[in-house]
Amino acid sequence: MLAFVLRRLFQAALVMLAVAFVAFSLFNYVGDPVNMMVGQDATPEQKQELRESLGLDKPQYVQFAVFVKNALHGDFGLSLKQGRLVSTLIKERMPATLELAFVAGALALLGGLLMGVYTALRRDGWLSQFLLTVSLIGVSLPNFLIGILLILLFAVTLPWLPSYGRGEVTSLGWWTTGFLTTSGWRALVLPAVTLSLYPMTLIMRLVRSEMLEVLRTDYIKFARARGLTDRAVHFGHALKNTMVPVMTITGLQLGSIIAFAIVTETVFQWPGMGFLFIQSVQFADIPVMAAYLVLISLVFVTINLIVDLLYYVVDPRLRIERTAGAH
């Protein structure tokens, strides 16, 4: 067990180091940071002085070590575009992304479970067939197009919901929340639905196939023979046993929800981290890009580490070589 955990931790650390190296080379090979910082009329001596004060005259590996040390403290310097600390910018944007991801994830789990159970129990009903067909189309539609179509439908044709922004937000210390106002909730509906559709269809299909599998087993037949109600059999016995794969897939999906949030946030101009990243790419705002790159990689590495360890705990058969899947 210990060896497994250590090997995984070592691998995660290696990945993070590689990511940090990419972020580091962004700073070093894209333009000259000194030229970006000083004015047009700076003398060579001033430049040299700045170079030394920034530590840019030291060898590459020393600079890299300093970069990693700063990154570990969450220090990525100043945003080139806004002239503010990158860590502050990210801290400001994080609540928006996390709230969106949380609501979308909850929606996906709830909707996926309900529809999955329904389509498994009423296999041949017209509604089940309809849901399955729609989910097939849903999987092949690009996320941003769904967002645009929803805007066209519910914000332009039927002016019910706002098409961009986060609505009114209340600030609680450094955390800003849209959960406390009606306009915040109204603004959340379209982005959250857009973001939840893909994981929802995945969870639905997974729950359905797992349920169908479980419903065929002997202990379900035995439960029925004991005269238990349908409700007890379906939810007490069958659904409970489909939960292990559903939980792992949902965990893995959490990461892709955060990744896809980049697209959804851009469609709805949602002021989250993904939107910040896209803006920083367009303005070549290197410090912000580097910080986002490191942060998103950290999220994925952590999620995968946890899922890997959970697999190990839950299923002893997998204690040999385990690779986590992703789509």
Binding site: Q11, V15, V22, L26, Y29, V30, G255, S256, A259, F260, I262, V263, F277, I278, V281, A284, I286, M289, L293, I296, S297, F300, V301, N304, T323, A324, G325, A326, H327
Partner: peptide, 23 residues
């Protein structure tokens, strides 16, 4: 291959394209 598969493909493409173009 395993490590790359733990990241969603679209995210990897986005990062490579967004960051690659800076070079």
């Amino acid at each position: 291959a395993d490590i790359q598969l733990t990241f969603p493909a679209i995210l990897v493409a986005l990062l490579i394209s967004g960051i690659g173009r800076q070079f």
